[in-house]
Simulated assay, not measured.
Amino acid sequence: MLAYRFIPGEPNPVPQQVPIPTPAAEEVLVKVLAAGVCHTDVGILTPGDMLNLWCASKSFTLGHEGAGIIAEIPASVASAFPNLKVGDYVAMWCGDACKKPACSVCAYGFTDLCTFDRLHGVGLDGTWAEYITLHASCVVPVPASPERIPPAVISAATDATLSPYHAMKTCCGVRPEHTVLCMGTGGLGLNGVAIAKKCLRARCVIACDTRQSAREDALAAGADYAVGPEELAGLVEEKKLVVDFAFDFVGIQATFDSCFAAIRPGGTIHVLGLGANAQQYQQLVAMSKNLTLKTSFWGARSDLAEVLQAIAEGTLQPKVDTRPMSEVVEVLDEMRAGRLQARVALIPEGAASASA
Rank of each mutant, 00 (worst) to 15 (best):
P229N: 04
V329Y: 03
L51K: 07
E334R: 15
A221N: 04
V105E: 11
F297V: 05
A71P: 05
A262W: 10
R148E: 14
D248P: 10
I149K: 03
I20G: 00
L232V: 07
Y281L: 11
L304E: 07
L119V: 08
S353E: 14
A136W: 06
K198F: 00
I252C: 11
P150F: 02
G228V: 12
T170E: 07
A34G: 14
S355E: 14
A354T: 01
H39G: 07
R118T: 10
W54A: 11
C103T: 12
A56M: 08
C172D: 12
H135Q: 10
Y4S: 08
C138S: 15
L33S: 12
P324H: 09
R175A: 14
P141L: 01
T46E: 09
L53W: 04
Q253I: 05
A246R: 04
D49C: 06
V236R: 12
K197V: 00
K99F: 15
S145K: 11
F116S: 09
V331G: 14
L346I: 11
G314D: 00
E72W: 00
V37P: 12
M50S: 13
G95F: 06
C172E: 04
L235Q: 01
A351S: 06
M325S: 01
A91N: 09
E238Q: 15
N191K: 01
R343D: 03
V227M: 04
A160D: 11
T179R: 01
E230T: 08
D321G: 13
V250I: 14
D257F: 06
T292A: 09
F60V: 08
A25L: 15
V153S: 03
V77P: 02
S288Q: 12
M287R: 07
P141V: 00
S137A: 13
T46S: 13
G95N: 00
G350A: 05
A276S: 15
D248V: 11
N52E: 03
Y4N: 06
F247Y: 06
V37Q: 07
I206R: 06
A356V: 01
R343N: 04
A254D: 13
A157I: 01
V90M: 03
A356M: 09
L51T: 09
R215K: 02
F245Q: 05
L33C: 10
T179N: 06
T170L: 01
I154A: 08
A254F: 03
S302N: 12
W128H: 15
H135I: 07
